[in-house]
């Protein structure tokens, strides 16, 4: 069932315009709002929360129009980007705060606090004051406080940012544990690695618009807009200069073999892109685009090496676990089926 329906929503904030945006969140959905800083993710979140009033469009929550409803009447949980606990209260009082506005007995409130703190593994922190907690623990309490009233929808604004790796893992574990609350989640992030589930819905936002939407794993592997491919750093992106049969050529003396059918379908293509992992080194494969190039730069990563290889007038990034030297000549090949076709997202209204 549809839990949240955002219809033709427009919000203006100074010179920035958000929208028009239309999307839906289903019951028990986990939706990722992904995009660069300044793309309007937080503005959208705060508009759903009721902090910003839209210029036009409507927001329906559980089938009711909540566009003009005050924040406190929406029953939507919110975990802000900056950790803001109620400093004058203990952790227990922080978590219990929202329950005091529900018609719950003292016993029910106590049980609820204990249940939430058990699920998020913060039972040992209940009698502490926020100033006694680490940054990661504060974030856990912030999440516990938001989930305690059991809202049907929880808005998470960059809950994994500014955390050290261990704290990040424990927050990720806590966020996964939220499934037990049957709450739909909208998770704002500007880092794709922070997405909890590869099958979740992803909305890619750019300059106030949703440019791409779909399953996270699919959108990530096959971006269709120049903006998303550019934002997913390290992709090899080239402007299309010429099309010759099943060859697509950027400026320079390099052409890439692509599927002929794909060219027909993607007639608005302005750019092509190839992931560095799809550039294969040291193999000669028939039907693939193969060239010899010169290693110009090497970046060491946790899983291997990222090479910048000069092919005539262009540079191509290739990922490999094999060690190569600077100025070494290497053979590289690209599978035609791995070449992605891109168009400019902002010129195409969705």
């Amino acid at each position: 069932m549809t839990l949240l329906r955002v219809g033709a929503l427009v919000m203006k904030l100074g010179d920035f315009t958000l929208g028009p945006l239309t999307f839906e969140v289903e019951d028990n959905d986990y939706v990722v709002l992904f995009g660069p800083n300044g793309s309007g993710k937080t503005t959208l979140l705060k508009t759903i929360l009721g902090f910003y009033k839209p210029v036009s469009g409507r927001i329906f929550f559980k089938g009711i129009d909540i566009t003009g409803l005050p924040i406190e009447k929406r029953n939507i949980g919110y975990v802000p980007q900056s950790i803001v606990l109620f400093e004058n209260m203990t952790v227990r009082q922080n978590i219990e705060f929202g329950l005091k506005f529900k018609k719950l007995s003292k016993e029910e409130r106590k049980n609820r606090v204990e249940r939430v703190s058990e699920i998020l593994s913060i039972g040992n922190l209940l009698d502490k004051k926020p100033r006694e907690l680490s940054y990661g623990q504060k974030q856990l309490v912030s999440i516990a406080r938001a989930i305690a009233p059991e809202p049907s929808l929880l808005l998470l604004d960059e809950p994994l940012s500014n955390l050290d790796p261990n704290a990040r893992l424990s927050i990720m574990k806590a966020l996964r544990a939220l499934k037990r609350f049957n709450t739909s989640i909208i998770h704002v992030t500007h880092i794709i690695e922070n997405v909890l589930y590869p099958d979740s819905k992803l909305l890619f936002m750019y300059r106030g618009k949703i440019l791409e939407r779909g399953k996270t794993s699919e959108v990530y592997s096959n971006p269709t807009t120049l903006e998303l491919a550019t934002y997913l750093s390290n992709w090899n992106i080239y402007e299309v200069y010429e099309k010759k049969g099943s060859l697509i050529c950027p400026k320079g003396r390099v052409c890439f073999a692509v599927d002929r059918e794909k060219i027909k379908v993607n007639d608005k293509t302005t750019h092509i892109a190839v992931k560095p992992v799809d550039v294969v080194l040291d193999k000669k494969i028939d039907g693939w685009s193969c060239y010899e190039g010169l290693v110009e730069d090497i970046q060491v990563t946790s899983y291997g090496y990222l090479y910048s290889i000069r092919l005539f007038d262009i540079l191509i990034m290739a990922f490999s676990s094999k060690k190569k030297g600077l100025k070494e000549r290497v053979r590289l090949c690209i599978d035609p089926s791995k070449v992605v076709f891109l168009k400019k997202g902002l010129s195409v209204e969705r």
């Binding site: 924040i71 949980g77 919110y78 802000p80 900056s82 803001v84 109620f86 004058n88 705060f97 938001a146």
Partner: peptide, 26 residues
């Protein structure tokens, strides 16, 4: 941080409740 008031309201506290129970104590 104004976010503290926003969080309070998202938890069901009215503007008055937020003012007297969150802002003033802080």
């Amino acid at each position: 941080d104004p976010e503290v008031e926003l969080v309070s309201r998202s938890l069901g506290a009215s503007r008055f409740a937020t003012f007297f129970r969150v802002t003033i104590p802080s």
